[in-house]
């Protein structure tokens, strides 16, 4: 559902912010609060219903845009889709070499004993940080395809991280 919204609505446009990975968190939040105040349904209770429905839709769009841009991964995805609509889905098929590595990673998570888990969690954190840095670099060079492929690669690492956390809680 989220992916569909990302394709239809440009969150940068919704919030009137420059389309870049380097969004300042304070600027983003300030703009979000400012726009939310003008679109808050309670504040506009006296206007007629059609306008109120539109206002509600706008409030929802502002919330969605803020959520999308606050997180660097969904922000990167929004930038990819802005540069080349559909590019994330178009790059979803990854190389057998990468997938073989992803399978080894999943195996390592499944087999990890408690004392080895922290080292594995650290390895996953480092890998994700490196991928995010590569995505930033790709987007700086307006290379939506490389950035999108990296976003798809990151999902396997994110899944491994989530599986590991769940395993440690159990």
């Amino acid at each position: 559902m989220r992916h569909v919204l990302l394709r239809l609505i440009d969150p940068f446009e919704t919030l009137g912010l420059p389309a870049t990975m380097d969004l300042d968190a304070a600027t983003l939040e300030a703009r979000y609060l400012e726009l939310s105040r003008t679109a808050h349904p309670d504040r506009n209770a006296e206007v007629e219903s059609d306008a109120q429905v539109a206002m509600l839709a706008r409030a929802a769009a502002i919330n969605d845009a803020f959520r999308t841009l606050r997180d660097p991964w969904t922000r990167a995805q929004a930038l990819c889709e802005r540069l080349a609509p559909g590019v994330v889905a178009a790059t979803a098929k990854l190389s057998p070499e990468f997938l073989a590595g992803a399978m080894e990673l999943a195996e390592a998570v499944a087999l990890a004993e408690r004392d080895a888990a922290e080292a594995l969690a650290e390895r996953i954190r480092r890998a994700l940080a490196a991928i995010l840095a590569d995505i930033r670099a790709a987007l700086t060079h307006v290379d939506a395809r490389s950035a999108a492929r990296l976003l798809n690669e990151a999902r396997y690492w994110q899944k491994a991280g989530a599986d590991l956390r769940q395993k440690l809680r159990a």
């Binding site: 992803a102 399978m103 999943a106 396997y156 994110q158």
Partner: peptide
């Protein structure tokens, strides 16, 4: 013959 495929949406890998 080896086929290895994945679905990034859910992080599934299949060999």
């Amino acid at each position: 013959g080896t086929g290895i495929v994945g679905a990034p949406e859910c992080g599934d890998v299949m060999k």
